[in-house]
Design a binder for these strands. Structure first.
Lengths: 131, 131
DNA sequence: GCAGCTGTACGAGTTGAGTCGAACTTAGCA
DNA sequence: TGCTAAGTTCGACTCAACTCGTACAGCTGC
């Protein structure tokens, strides 16, 4: 479970573009807000939906690899609905999306969110549907 | 600043009604969800609005007394709009409201929220409008 | 090429939230 | 008794979000 790293960057003084500590050669991320453009009310709004909470929680708890395509989640919704929700998460700054050929894979922006809103992802990881 | 008590009850095993560690003789709270009926997606949805974030943050940081009436916040909105937002916060379980004669005073349910969603109120307290 | 797959774009229908005015209720007080 | 102030309730409007079907674009492999 990746929900143990304590946000090793710590401060919020990063530039509006991202500095990725990731393996090189990745496709460029799709447009997204920079770390210091993240707004609490926007992030909370993106997470105030059970389906999107399910997506983010599954990414946090079960993504043994790096990132995951849309179909990996096994969500029983039409594709156009899923596009809508994944786009909402990305535009709020919760997830990052990269294009790998056909697939568009998503990952949670753990470091950015831990730096700006510490503890928030722990709440998402502890969430359970309709309990 | 009341943002330092570490949720002294700790567990989430309370019954659906509330057990108040408060001075007696208070008016009964208006209808609200019990502690273990609080839903993360509902609470996040209630907090995904700048005006409501302002209300909760002001209650957390500046409420030197116990609770506060609607007019104490100095919000420049019509009364019917304020009623709407205070009701949304109460029905989501973020605030508790009591009727004192004419006034309806609000307080944040700090213990309940700290017990169910630890760290969430710290994010609200650290929030700043349009920054 | 052509099928098959992943996902987007667009548009329409529907629902729900926010905003507000106007009328009402209630409490306190002169 | 009547005024005033705090807040609710109702209804209407607007607007954004959700849902989904359909059509389209791009990659992959036969």
């Amino acid at each position: 479970m990746p929900r143990s790293m304590p946000g090793s960057i710590g401060a919020t003084g990063a530039p509006a573009v991202r500095a990725l500590p990731e393996p090189p050669g990745l496709p460029e991320p799709l447009p997204e807000p920079g770390r210091d453009q993240l707004r609490l009310e926007t992030v909370l709004g993106a997470l105030s939906d059970p389906l999107r909470l399910t997506i983010v929680r599954k990414l946090l708890l079960e993504s043994e690899d790096y990132d995951h395509s849309c179909g990996w989640f096994g969500l029983d919704r039409p594709k156009s609905s899923l596009t809508h929700h994944f786009k909402a998460l990305r535009e709020a700054g919760v997830t990052r999306q990269r294009q790998y050929g056909l697939e568009r894979r998503s990952q949670v922006r753990v470091e950015d969110l831990d730096a700006r809103f510490p503890g928030l992802l722990d709440l998402v990881a502890a969430w359970t549907p309709q309990g």
